[in-house]
């Protein structure tokens, strides 16, 4: 991945950057797509890989798969293709570079986590922060901390790089079906985002389209699992030493 390219405007006074990439249950992608539509965020640029492996065409316009959106102080980077290991580092470097140049206060990374049994009527989202000052955000919004477990795959690569950067990051992992697109978990994630940005987001349209989203995202889910499975095989239970 190359440095981010801002196409339409220079950015001023940014605050929060949301990251939504394909992962377990496609939580990041589905929730971020809806937020972008619900908040009517503007497309302001793309993060380009060189050369790009995919170009989407919409109404005769070429659109890159990894795009940057903005609305007031909220920024969003969304990817419509899985970020594999080869691209994860370059992608994160672009995100960090973008964040520094636009004075992002903190980054919010959206993903899912597989749980054996989950209460569908009360799905939980767990928060993980890289900098202590974000702990208050979890506390103020009654978001439980991600206390123990393993994060693997490109999520781990991205989060470990963000952790080493100077930009505070908060990761939200929502209980989800790991293997299928999970609109219910995406709805829970959107509710959390709504809390964080203190803006009510009407979920009516999302709920209406939930089954469409499951069908429409089948191929992306398969592609994502192919990337995730590579690492999942070697993921482990947290080591018990020092416990």
């Amino acid at each position: 991945m190359q440095r981010s390219k801002i196409k339409k405007e220079s950015l001023e006074d940014p605050s929060v950057l949301f990251l939504g990439i394909p992962g377990p249950g496609l939580i990041g992608t589905m929730s971020m797509t809806y937020i972008i539509h619900a908040l009517k965020m503007d497309l302001i640029g793309e993060i380009e890989s060189s050369p790009s492996s995919v170009i989407f065409v919409d109404n005769g316009q070429m659109i890159g798969p990894v795009r940057i959106y903005k609305k007031d102080k909220i920024f969003a980077i969304i990817s419509d293709i899985p970020i594999d290991y080869d691209n994860a580092i370059g992608f994160t470097e672009s995100v960090i570079d973008f964040s520094k140049r636009n004075h992002i206060d903190f980054i919010v990374f959206l993903s899912g986590i597989q749980v054996q049994e989950r209460n569908m009527s009360n799905l939980k989202t767990y928060g993980l922060v890289t900098h202590e000052k974000l702990e208050k955000l979890l506390y103020d919004n009654a978001i439980p901390k991600f206390l123990s477990g393993v994060i693997s795959g490109p999520d781990a690569t991205i989060l470990s790089q963000l952790r080493n950067s100077l930009i505070p990051t908060i990761a939200f992992h929502t209980e989800c079906n790991y293997f299928f697109p999970d609109p219910d978990a995406a709805i829970q994630t959107i509710k959390i985002i709504s809390q964080i940005i203190k803006t009510e987001i009407d979920l009516t349209e999302f709920k209406k389209q939930a089954d469409y989203l499951r069908l429409q995202n089948r191929q992306l889910m398969e592609d994502t699992l192919n990337v995730l499975q590579t690492q999942k095989e070697s993921s482990t239970i947290p080591p018990q030493i020092y416990k």
Partner: peptide, 13 residues
């Protein structure tokens, strides 16, 4: 229909 609804409908139809 909202932007999102239109977007999905457009994709489908």
């Amino acid at each position: 229909m909202s932007d999102f609804g239109s977007f999905i409908e457009k994709q489908m139809n």
